[in-house]
Design a protein around this nucleic acid. Sequence first.
DNA 1: TTGAAAGCGCTACCAA
DNA 2: TTGGTAGCGCTTTCAA
Lengths: 348, 348
Amino acid sequence: MGMSVQEKEGRTQVTIREIAKEAGVSLGTVSHVLNRTASVSEEKSRAVLEAVKKLGYKPNQAARMLKNKNSKTIGLLLPDIGNPFYAELARGAEDMANSHEYTVLVCNNDRNPEKEERYLSTLANKQVDGIIVVKLANSVEKLKQYFAPKQIVLIDSEELPCERENSQIQMVNLNEREGASIAMNYLYHNGHRNIAHIAGLLESNSSRERKREYCDFMKRIGVSEEQLVIENGTYSYYGGYQAMKTILNRNPEVTGVFAANDLMGMGAMQAIQDSGRRVPEDISVIGYDDIEPTEYCTPKLTTIRQPKYEMGQYGMALALKALGEDQVTLPLLPRNFLIVRQSVQRKR
Amino acid sequence: MGMSVQEKEGRTQVTIREIAKEAGVSLGTVSHVLNRTASVSEEKSRAVLEAVKKLGYKPNQAARMLKNKNSKTIGLLLPDIGNPFYAELARGAEDMANSHEYTVLVCNNDRNPEKEERYLSTLANKQVDGIIVVKLANSVEKLKQYFAPKQIVLIDSEELPCERENSQIQMVNLNEREGASIAMNYLYHNGHRNIAHIAGLLESNSSRERKREYCDFMKRIGVSEEQLVIENGTYSYYGGYQAMKTILNRNPEVTGVFAANDLMGMGAMQAIQDSGRRVPEDISVIGYDDIEPTEYCTPKLTTIRQPKYEMGQYGMALALKALGEDQVTLPLLPRNFLIVRQSVQRKR
DNA sequence: TTGAAAGCGCTACCAA
DNA sequence: TTGGTAGCGCTTTCAA
């Protein structure tokens, strides 16, 4: 009869009202069959479903939002989606959300508190049902101010100061300490005792946590504070290179190096090789992050892999569960793990 | 289930109605001062603004959407945000959108047509005002079917088949040919005539376009089809390594290599060095993409940089302009450009 | 310049 | 099981 589906869609939105007319039932009935919110007779139910298909009906989310006071949307606020670490985390969160019919609104704060605050405001406005913030740049108070009664999940390298009890805030810890501990243990169990650390950017929490664990670990195995070998590598390849050069000069006794990220680990390997020594025969190196180039360098860098994707999944699952989506199964708490490649060897 | 949450929310949203009461004016008046849609007396206007501030009023976007039939949201559908190329493009799009009070909903189709179609449906539902699709996995018809009268911007490596005139579809070309042409010209102007090509994945448009330009360029400088040297490297490091080994064996006359991406370029350099030859003294290599590791390898890889961020900006500007946001200034059409590093040298 | 009121499309309550 | 109906918060028309 006249118009094709496309044409009809093209002009005006098909509403529940038209479905009702087409199927010869009332608005309420249509709503009920669409939402399975009451039992409807087989007959009418089929009529509605047919009308829906015929007219190409799509529920208007705006109307639903207005009525239900939810948007089936979760905000995800992170430092920078261009960083593969956060990109993978975002994928995990997104996939988890999608499998429960939720949508994710991803925003980058560029580690800039003002930009973050603008997003906080926008997201609160956009009626997101909950928000996941990775490495919050503002204070927890600020965050609560905008998201007052809504669900909040914080993902960070360290515990943030906020009352744990009766709070709508949940924390996921990135577990930097655990990862660093795995790295140190691996060097230790390979016989290394003179272990140096190439630290990352002092400003970053993750860097601080990794360094802290290095210190604690060394202390635990009986090394005094003054004997710690720590150089700063600013998380960059050249930083790692320079830091390693310094270590080679000042601490020739070092046989194991724990670099706070892979880039510095690779730089360190280069410095060792340039000095005529070999990796891992003379000095073992372990990195952190498991970025792609660790596969291409010589030797391939042994490193710590963070469960980025799983962290995202986990955080999202937490948020959805708190929103009352009780068919959500919370995944196991993701753990860091060791990726054994070629750059660490038993001390000779 | 959600009940406890609802109850806990307790304090209800501040609505325009409460503002009206507080300010002692009518609903319409409040709306008018908020939207500057009619002139309101100085006195009442101030009263409204004060009430807004006092009660912390935030307009309900759902209600606005319902009434205005727009969401100030643009969908961005791309293969995979985990790929730095798309991540940067997304940032460009996002920044452009944000500066005009629009929000971006980013979705990954994983190059999977079914997944993409699900998103098409979700996005159409979510009342996005327009959609930007990077490397559409479905047909243009399918896309139009979902987004019938809405604004559509397509970003792709090649022209997609769709009527250009009077269409609500706009195309942005990734200009692979231009980039490949720059690479080939650079080798050519450095005296190279025996140029080999390491091609990427045959399935990908970008790879095909780059290869096509290699062929055309060689033809233009008088090389016959049979003399072309093309090996497949599947876009991977090892693929590039193997491809280069084959070339070294079969075509020792080659002095210049154009790799369809940086990973293969780096693999090729390794193969050349492993064979006892030098880069760039004996053989010059140029890559494509300008990924980070090109800075760490030896020698540093000369390459082509795609204006990813700018492409995203441009595509978004196109969409916003089409939506009637006329204060949007369309940026210059972004171009590919050469990044000169160390891997190409004048032929000796 | 202002206020009243009619919806936008949907859900959910109540009565039948 | 069904239908009627009252809003959700906002914009906008129409009178005043």
